[in-house]
């Protein structure tokens, strides 16, 4: 390496590790929001690298909607054991049982927006002052304006017009009592960067991301896994399809893609030629043009 240049993946890694270390240094009770998706798995991997040979110095929080893919939960538990890191589970079912959240009804009912209640309750219970997540700016137009250090008021809300300017590598995590931050160390990564890095670093992923056979229902052009959480509408039928997932949310709302890509090279090739965005299959984003922005203002991550 004579010309002192690092490639873009190393530069993104370096930036993310810098941000993760800033979180650990600037906050008293940081946590990592672990969804079980590839982005939060990547984030956990970067956190491990940031503090090695010490263990990750903060717990992982998983908001369990009760509608998760079983593969996600199994993967989560193995990862936590391997890293020797603490796991906190916030339960949406519990929030519903306690009357803190109200289940949506109808065939398109989802627990996606109910996560907000459980998330904010869990953050409050553990007095979390910084919650880091694997959100990326290329995912969605409201996220394109998100800061690395995103300030939330005492009600957990995001005010996009009153964001702190972020200059150079200087991240301002100072806050008043009761306020907290959401921090997004992989803000600058694209879907392609994530997959290339996963390949470069040989990071384990849940089997959902690779091509497999599954019973599915096609609803409004979106391929959904058939499960106990989904009610068939008139005219819908269950078909066995060869699919994989590009993102990993709740079973009833995460759309799959038909795909034969059963290894990382094939996935990367598929993404390079694909013509739809990865959240294109997310029913939660399709509710309105500003669905993500509205949820983020309320405290979604």
């Amino acid at each position: 390496m004579s010309n002192y240049v690092i490639n873009h993946l190393k530069e993104l890694e370096s930036e993310a590790i810098f941000v993760i270390r800033e979180i650990a240094a600037q906050f008293e009770n940081p946590v990592l929001l672990f969804s079980g998706g590839k982005d939060s798995i990547l984030l956990t991997h970067l956190a491990k690298k940031a503090f090695y040979p010490a263990k990750i110095p903060f717990p992982l929080i998983h908001i369990d909607t009760g509608h998760n893919f079983p593969e996600t939960i199994e993967f989560r538990d193995n990862l936590v054991e391997k890293l020797g890191v603490k796991l906190i589970v916030g339960s949406v079912q519990e929030a519903i049982d306690k009357g803190r959240a109200k289940e949506e009804t109808g065939a398109d009912a989802s627990r996606n927006s109910l996560q907000i209640v459980s998330l904010l309750d869990t953050l409050e219970e553990y007095k979390v002052d910084a919650a880091m997540g694997g959100a990326r700016r290329d995912e969605e137009k409201a996220r394109a304006k998100e800061r690395f250090f995103s300030h939330r008021d005492e009600f957990g809300q995001w005010d996009p017009k009153n964001q702190r300017p972020e200059l150079w590598n200087l991240f301002n995590g100072r806050k008043n009592y009761g306020e907290h931050f959401r921090v997004f160390p992989i803000s600058n990564w694209t879907e392609m960067d994530v997959w290339e890095y996963i390949k470069l670093e040989n990071i384990d992923l849940p089997s959902l991301y690779f091509s497999h056979q599954r019973d599915c229902v096609v609803r409004d052009g979106v391929i959904l896994a058939n499960s106990e959480f989904i009610k068939l509408k008139e005219g819908e039928k269950v078909e066995n399809m060869t699919i994989r997932y590009r993102t990993c949310g709740d079973m009833p709302i995460t759309g799959a893609v038909e795909s034969e890509a059963d290894n990382l090279d094939k996935i990367i090739e598929e993404i390079a030629t694909t013509r739809t965005t990865e959240r294109g299959g997310r029913a939660d984003d399709k509710r309105a043009e500003t669905a993500m922005e509205d949820r983020k203002k309320q405290g979604y991550f």
Binding site: H8, A142, A144, K145, P160, K161, Q163, N188, D193
Partner: peptide, 26 residues
């Protein structure tokens, strides 16, 4: 155009980050 108020007013009001790559650079 990212945020609601911008789409309404047709102007950009904050720094927005965009990403693209070619075979030569990101």
């Amino acid at each position: 155009d990212g945020l609601k108020s911008e789409r309404e007013q047709g102007i950009t009001i904050d720094v927005a980050y965009r990403y693209f790559a070619t075979p030569k650079r990101k």
